[in-house]
Design a protein around this nucleic acid. Structure first.
Length: 491
RNA sequence: CGGGAUGUAGCGCAGCCCGGUAGCGCACUACGUUCGGGACGUAGGGGCCGCAGGUUCGAAUCCUGUCAUCCCGACCA
């Protein structure tokens, strides 16, 4: 049992905070709602970012960078968009400070008021489409496939480390196409990319679906999403991809000439994932001893802990440890040899478990004599002694096995937390006692969706893609329904 | 923005009721012994007691304000 981490059973929210703070991922900062991402947490984000970036480029996208500030007037061009974001925007009104003539330190200079206020971007559709207007003339300029890695600000009332912070890091893809079909294909393609990444790298199974109109992105025609299930039975939206139709093209007057030289508005998508994924990763896999990171994105995949007996053969032990580390590194493994003399082995064991390092190797005098290494895996806590011969190959395989095993475990949990409900009492009972996704019929109206949300705090997470048609009655109103949708309480 | 809690050493806390030299554990520094599951000894360093007023001979402690953070709700990725 960890001395420092609150157990999930005792207090799930506190457990999550403890993991993030004590696992060394992030700290609270002096700024309300904003966190400091610490080196270990940032390394994890970098692993995720680099893999996603590779995937984006492989699917033909290029990176660019657009301004942090957006003129206020831009935001209001698209009606639904401004409606969705207006309540959570940080606004820059002045550009200068000065000494307080009354001696109270520094104040905003009232004379330095901006002609037009600037919004700190909550997302960049408006500034980007304003720019695209000048980039796009002809069908030959399409498709335009751009991504940007950036920070954004949404003034949320309540924040939680990684899951919802005032400022967060993300990527936002913004593409322009000659017709609707191509744009929809793009939106779906990026949903595939997200699915691939989250399932195969984060070892986290997701449900792919489409949002109901009330859960749609502000300004979108359709919002596709991937939804993941956390250990406490709450759902978490892990990524979204939007088909924006011609909404932004019309708002910013972005037209192109087609082959027949006819002018038309271009078709758009946008898609994003954020540092929120780090929160999902933490909540989905970890246990009461600390983080459990999937090997493919763990900043440290293997840690080697030497166990000394005084100075006896210490140099040999060090040499053997370094040799092992460099052999693992050569095999493409991110490895750390921790021969720091300040902490004892037991302390290190606990520390690296807290940090979720997938594999720990312990190397002591006994191992030198027997030509063995003690191998411990973080996810199952299994320990075994392996011969030094062929160890590298075994570790490579073990990392794969851990990756797959973590996915299987999360998948079992997820599948066990999709439950059908066909009457209201059952629906309520499931939500309160079991949690997870509840698959139920819905009459398709926003009113019913809203009523269920008010009563139970459960929302429709998505209508799964490839959802089988099935005639039934709405869980609340009893009106006819043609398919089931997934309800859940969500982060 | 409502409700609750908390601000005292880097972290976790005691002291506050009942005003009188600011403490404990961990961490840190030095040296030594240790090292197969969170080591131990000895000697050290570190504080505008969140901030601003007030009461008092004297305030971490009492009073008034204020700021910040966390948790729970409404809003949201």
């Amino acid at each position: 049992m960890s001395k420092e981490i609150t157990s999930r059973k005792e207090d799930y929210a506190q457990w999550y905070n403890d993991l993030v703070i004590k696992g060394g991922l992030a700290d609270y900062s002096a700024v309300r709602g904003c966190m400091v991402i610490k080196p270990y947490g940032f390394a994890l984000w970098e692993e995720m970012r680099d893999e996603l970036d590779r995937m984006f480029k492989e699917t033909g996208h290029e990176n660019a960078y657009f301004p942090l500030f957006i003129p206020k007037s831009f935001l209001s061009r698209e009606a639904a968009h401004v409606e969705g974001f207006a309540k959570e925007c940080a606004v820059v009104t002045h550009y200068r400070l000065k000494n307080d003539p009354d001696g109270g330190g520094i104040i905003v200079d009232p004379e330095a008021k901006l002609e037009e206020e600037l919004i700190v971007r909550p997302t960049s559709e408006t500034i980007i489409w304003n720019t695209y207007k000048t980039w796009i003339q002809s069908y030959r300029d399409l498709p335009l496939l751009i991504n940007q890695w950036a920070n954004v600000v949404r003034w949320e009332m309540r924040t939680r480390l990684f899951l919802r912070t005032t400022e967060f890091l993300w990527q936002e893809g913004h593409t322009a196409h000659a017709n609707a079909e191509e744009a929809i294909t793009e939106a779906r393609l990026m949903l595939d990319v997200y699915t691939d990444f989250v399932e195969n790298f984060m070892a986290l199974p997701v449900i792919r679906g489409v949002k109901t109109p009330s859960e749609r992105f502000a300004g979108a025609i359709d919002t596709y999403c991937i939804e993941a299930m956390m250990q406490d039975g709450k759902a978490l939206q892990a990524g979204t991809s939007h088909f924006l139709g011609q909404n932004f093209a019309k708002a910013f007057d972005v037209k192109f000439s087609d082959k027949q030289n006819k002018l038309d508005y271009v078709w758009a998508t946008s898609w994003g994932v954020s540092t929120r994924l780090v929160g999902a990763l933490v909540m989905a896999h970890s246990d009461d001893e600390g983080l459990i990171l999937p090997p493919k994105i763990a900043p440290i995949q293997v840690v080697i802990v030497p166990i000394y007996k005084g100075d006896e053969r210490k140099e040999l032990l060090d040499a053997r440890g370094k040799e092992l580390a460099s052999a693992l590194k050569k095999a493409g493994i991110r490895v750390k040899f921790d021969n720091n003399d300040n902490n004892r082995p037991g302390w290190k064991f606990a520390e690296y478990e807290k940090k979720g390092v997938p594999v720990r190797l312990a190397l002591g005098l006994r191992d030198l004599d027997n030509h063995t290494v003690e191998v411990a895996r973080r996810d199952t806590k299994d320990k075994m002694s392996l011969p030094a011969e062929g160890l590298i190959e075994r570790i490579v395989l073990l990392l794969q096995e851990i990756q797959e095993s973590m996915y299987r475990k999360a998948l079992l949990f997820r599948d066990d937390h999709i439950t059908k409900a066909d009457d209201w009492d059952e629906f309520v009972r499931l939500l309160d006692e079991k949690g997870g996704f509840i698959s139920a019929h819905w009459d398709g109206t926003p009113e019913t969706e809203e009523a269920i949300k008010d009563k139970l705090k459960a929302t429709i997470r998505c209508i799964p893609l490839n959802n089988p048609p099935e005639n039934g009655k709405c869980i609340l109103t009893g009106r006819p329904s043609k398919e089931r949708v997934l309800f859940a309480r969500a982060y």
